[in-house]
Design a binder for these strands. Structure first.
Lengths: 126, 126
DNA sequence: CGGGTATATGTCTAGCGCGGCATATACAGG
DNA sequence: CCTGTATATGCCGCGCTAGACATATACCCG
């Protein structure tokens, strides 16, 4: 999880991941597309591979790097514990809090909130 | 997106986020629970706030930090572009590509693939 | 097996970020 | 107002890492 986030936290690495979304690419292709020097591309790919985000396959002298779903799926799983934060019910609460914040600068000692506007139901979550 | 990943890529910050999953906490509480010095907690919270991951609310002299769903939801949205990687149908494709890769070296500019093996459907995704 | 191509690895430098410490700010209570 | 509490901010040192460059390795071909 942490390693995955760390790997994706680097701009060029994220670009590589997004590039590989369309399918496997060679190191050279990646470097050319993203305008990166070859060594840099190799190093970033190394990190991504160590993080389990990509997979290599040798084809003659070039290496084809492909995106691997596992780690991304792991993120998705991790998010499962937080989906309630933006699920329908929670969104109402969010709106409510936002309104209270704008109109009525809440005293530090927050009291219970009295829903005034029915608040239109959002469409969907996820 | 990048900023979000960067924020979550730090161990203590991730711990803070996971801690806040159970509800808002004060700076002191966080520091005590995670055994971190107060300044460090404040700084991490600053980063999380700048990244839009948390929200502050003043209560007297303490500040209650609460998790905000928006950015996490953004990650979820970002993942949408990759779910195919671990969705059942895609797994077949993965196998297929692997086979093709072994037998017939595709040029880096990949062309359309011709399904050969029926490949059994996986169970579920997400 | 020599040369060319594709990629990996090593080295070095500069910059960023975390942690520790000291200090500033905000707020409540007497 | 003054003191204590809760949190933020400033400064410093150090470790990590991205980037540039040079070089090593792997592989193909003639």
């Amino acid at each position: 999880m942490l390693e995955t986030f760390a790997a994706l936290a680097e701009p060029n690495r994220l670009r590589i991941v997004e590039l590989l979304r369309d399918g496997p690419k060679s190191v050279g292709d990646i470097g050319e597309t993203l305008t990166l020097n070859q060594p840099q591309v190799s190093k970033h790919l190394r990190v991504l591979k160590d993080a389990g985000l990509v997979d290599v396959e040798s084809r003659a002298q070039q290496r084809l790097y492909a995106l691997r779903g596992a780690q991304l799926r792991a993120i998705d799983r991790w998010l499962d514990g937080y989906r309630a934060l933006w699920d329908a019910r929670m969104e109402q609460l969010g709106d409510l809090l936002a309104e209270l914040g704008e109109n009525d600068p809440p005293k530090t000692t927050s009291k219970s909130a009295k829903p005034k506007r029915p608040s239109k139901p959002k469409k969907r979550a996820r």
